[in-house]
């Protein structure tokens, strides 16, 4: 596989908090790649370093050492202004709590990553339309978040993450604040944009159900990669993959070895 085919390369990422005796290692030299059109899941127990990893890739947290290459460029070799340019444009975000600005309408929220970077809202009208239709949020485009359901809010957030055609979408527990029905709808939509539009998605999740939509899953434990699962599509059904995930999760929890 050529380097140019890798959208994201994470090389020997380390992150330590504190110093001296109080030092804790959140990430202990993690290395992996993400290729285009991939739907990568990251799973792990609380405190395993998932969020730290995501924040590093999101450029809102500096790793202590190591490199993160996006499209072949080391993102931390640039200054703050450049990083600001990166955010929203090259990277799309999906948060657990949606993080929609509640005094902006749905449409205004979706446009944000573009207008922040100086684009005319007029130009993206067609793109908004397409995304809104695909995500079934046309009726709420001119509503404020307080007038939307949780599922609608998260789908508006998906549209916001996708509007700038980012190289990669980072999703942090996107189903965390949704009920199972809305979670299912959301995952189907994400899977759709991954498969049909070729969006690359990196999703951190606790939820084995949500993870079963991924094409590959990295399990991390104590700041390092512990296991990797690939879905053998199209031979493997989603529910078979789900079962395999559950098995690894049980192992991750220590398996039967840890039972006292």
């Amino acid at each position: 596989m050529k380097i140019s085919e890798k959208i994201l390369q994470v090389k020997e990422i380390k992150k330590t908090y504190g110093s001296g005796e109080n030092q804790t290692e959140a990430l202990r030299g993690m290395t992996f790649d993400v290729i285009p059109r991939e739907f990568l899941g990251i799973m792990g127990a609380s405190g395993s370093g998932k969020t730290t990893l995501l924040n590093c890739i999101a450029t809102i947290l500096h790793p202590t050492s190591g490199q993160i290459m996006l499209g072949g460029e080391d993102i931390f070799s640039f200054n703050e202004d450049f990083l600001a340019n990166y955010r929203g444009k090259k990277i799309g975000y999906l948060f657990q709590d949606f993080e929609l600005l509640d005094n902006l309408t749905g449409r205004e929220n979706i446009e944000l990553p573009l207008v922040i970077h100086g684009e005319q809202p007029k130009k993206c009208e067609a793109a908004i339309r397409t995304l809104a239709e695909r995500l079934e949020i046309v009726p709420v485009l001119d509503k404020f978040p307080s007038q939307m359901s949780g599922g609608e809010k998260q789908r508006v957030a998906v549209a916001r993450a996708l509007i700038s055609n980012p190289s990669i979408v980072l999703a942090d527990e996107p189903t965390g604040a949704l009920d199972s029905k809305n979670a299912k709808t959301l995952m189907k939509k994400l899977s759709l944009v991954n498969q049909e539009d070729g969006a690359t998605i990196l999703m951190v999740t606790h939820d084995a159900n949500a993870a079963s939509y991924c094409s590959r899953i990295l399990f991390i434990k104590d700041g390092a990669i512990f296991h990797e699962l690939r879905r053998d599509s199209p031979n493997e059904t989603q529910s078979e993959f789900y079962d395999r995930i559950l098995t690894v999760l049980a192992q991750l929890g220590g398996g039967s070895n840890n039972v006292l």
Binding site: A84, R87, G88, E99, N103, L112, R160
Partner: peptide, 18 residues
């Protein structure tokens, strides 16, 4: 009370100066 909006904007790529 709306500080998280500013935080979201930062994550979406707004510059501090903006």
């Amino acid at each position: 009370s709306t500080r998280h909006r500013y935080e979201t904007l930062l994550v979406l790529g707004a510059k501090k100066e903006a």
